[in-house]
Write a protein that binds this DNA or RNA. Structure first.
Length: 282
DNA sequence: AGCTGTACCTGCAGGC
DNA sequence: TGCCTGCAGGTACAGC
């Protein structure tokens, strides 16, 4: 499901509701999702929630942490005393009642609270890791610099100009840049007026400047609108985001370009659906 | 080194 | 109505 803005939306929710809770037990219903020893987190208190790229990090008051990757369809939903009402859940196809058939891990917390991990396609994972060993893990050791963190413009232009692959694939390559996925790559390239097929190294400095600020802009907007619930993203309370209502190209094949009125095209790039306006993006 | 295709899963939309 | 195909926000890995 989620890219940087969706994961950040969940992080903000979890930070509000989860910090301070103690983990009483972990109910693992699908073994492949949960990696590591649950005994290392039982009894620990949650001290903070962080995000590295598209991965959530639940910090504990011991020497372990919980790293969670939601991949395409993972959801983390909190229910407990700090939520005065159960939000109306409209777009979670799985319906409002929890747990359901897609609930694969349940964290039982103190004060009658619960954190559900749901994942229709079971691609995601929850990993118990020693604090000091996180950066040695396969996913993290190769992760590129991140927008809003260490992705400066001078790093960005070096990354872009050192690859001959299509610019869209460079934006989505987590080893080059952390956090951008298919939706925001499409939207950023539209905003910058750049054809997603262009070999990255032939992007000029001026275009790179525009693209850099477009990336920050679309990610910021994604966070502002609480993420995109185009399919089944929900925040930490199970509620929808609304950024899908603001998409300018993603998913708009055959519709009119909002800038010039010509028809949005869809092609495949690196196996992923790619939407663009042939007139505005060059 | 770096690219491409495929695998991992399940549900759903669209075509016939 | 129902079957079949392709597609979906992400990575990891095999093979060239």
């Amino acid at each position: 499901m989620p890219e940087l803005p969706e994961v950040e939306t969940i992080r903000l929710g979890l930070q509000k509701y989860l910090v301070g809770h103690t983990i009483l037990d972990v109910d693992i219903r699908m073994a492949k999702i949960f990696q590591g020893e649950k005994k290392n987190v039982i009894g620990a208190k949650i001290t903070d929630i962080k995000r590295i790229g598209k991965v959530l990090i639940v910090e504990l008051n011991n020497e372990f942490l919980i790293a969670i990757h939601l991949k395409l369809t993972g959801q983390l939903i909190y229910r407990g005393e700090r939520v005065s009402r159960v939000p109306r859940v409209s777009r979670v196809k799985i319906g409002g009642e929890l747990p359901n058939k897609f609930t694969h891990v349940i964290f039982h917390l103190d004060r009658n609270s619960v954190l559900y991990y749901n994942d229709m396609r079971k691609f995601g994972w929850i990993r118990i890791v020693e604090n000091s060993k996180l950066k040695m893990q396969s996913f993290f050791k190769d992760l590129g610099p991140e927008p809003f963190k260490d992705l400066t413009f001078s790093k960005f232009i070096k990354i872009v100009q050192s690859s001959k692959t299509p610019i869209k694939l460079v934006l989505m390559d987590q080893k080059k840049i952390g956090g951008i996925g298919n939706i925001y790559a499409n939207e950023a390239l539209f905003d910058a007026g750049i054809d997603p097929r262009r070999p990255a190294k032939q992007i000029s400095e001026e275009e790179a400047k525009k693209l850099y600020s477009s990336i920050l802009k679309v990610l910021k907007n994604g966070i502002k609108y609480g993420g995109s619930s185009d399919v089944n993203f929900v925040n930490a309370l199970g509620e929808d985001g609304s950024y899908q209502e603001h998409f300018l190209v993603y998913g708009r094949k055959g519709e009119k370009c909002r800038r010039c009125g010509l028809v949005i095209k869809k092609i495949k790039l690196g196996g992923r659906g790619t939407y663009f306006c042939p007139a505005c993006q060059r």
